[in-house]
Structure formats: structure tokens, C-alpha cells
Amino acid sequence: MHEPVTISCTVNGRHYTRAVEPRRLLSDFIRHDLGLTGTHVGCEHGVCGACTVLLEGDAVRSCLMLAVQADGLSLMTIEGVASPDGTLHPLQAAFREQHGLQCGFCTPGFIMSILQFLGENPAPTDAEIREALSGNLCRCTGYVQIIAAVRQAAAAKAGAPGVG
């Protein structure tokens, strides 16, 4: 039973079938088996939030799930956030306009977390934004511009339709 298991899942609307070892982390499956390297791997123990993806609409740490556990389920990664023509999602545009990123390593995880958060709470207070961001670490920005980006995206009513 250490042998590869065949799994199928939908990622960003596209169907994939792959054979994976049971110990394959979902994060490594997304990056290495599917080639979707926008999902980043930081701490690999659930602290930094860089690997956050949406699983059936819920933000989860992909380093704390096995690929075999995603069999039959639907995922969304950072590659599925912008429009197919490349137009940025309003949340991504807000990050750019508010300088909510510098090196960008943590950004995909922040975006995926905030997509769920704004989908559920389209008009958050600053305290709610700070609490929602607490599960993602950024070592560059000092968070102030990220909070501003979430505020702008909320004001633009981003995240509410079509998320989750």
C-alpha cells in the first residue's frame, strides 16, 4: 500500500487524474505533479500560510493535507484567481495598488485566505481584517499595506460573488 494511488480532482475548473504516493503532500502534488507553482511552500507545518488553497471553497493549508485526501474534491489555487484573459481579480489589483506585496512569496496564500474571508464577510472591520490575516505570515510589508489592500477590495465589493 506504499504504492501509488490513482486520484482525480478538479483544480481551477480543470480535471486532473494522477498516480500519487500516499505520503505525497497536497502542496507538493499541486506544485510538482500538476506544475502549478504559484502555490508556495514555506514552513511545511501549518504556521506560515504560504501554501493556502481553497478546498471546496474553504481556505486550507495544502501542506497539512495529503494529495490522496483531495481525491474527488475541487480545489482552487492562485492560478485560478485572475480572469482567463489575465485581468487581475479586484483583490489582486488592490494588493498591487496598495503595495500589499514586496517579494511576493507569501502573497498567493494571503489572496486565497482573503478570498474566503471576504466571501463570508464582505464589509469587515479593521479588527476583523487583522484577525483574518493572522494565519498568514509576511516578512516584508509589515502588514499595513496588506490591510489597506483588503480594505480596498472590500470597498470594491470584491470577493463576494463567485468565491467558494
Binding site: A59, V60, Q116, S134
Partner: peptide, 9 residues
Amino acid sequence: IGHFQIRNR
């Protein structure tokens, strides 16, 4: 408990 991403799972 943890963060909302942890509580989701």
C-alpha cells in the same frame, strides 16, 4: 483554535 484555515479542516 488556531486560525480559520486550521478550523476549516
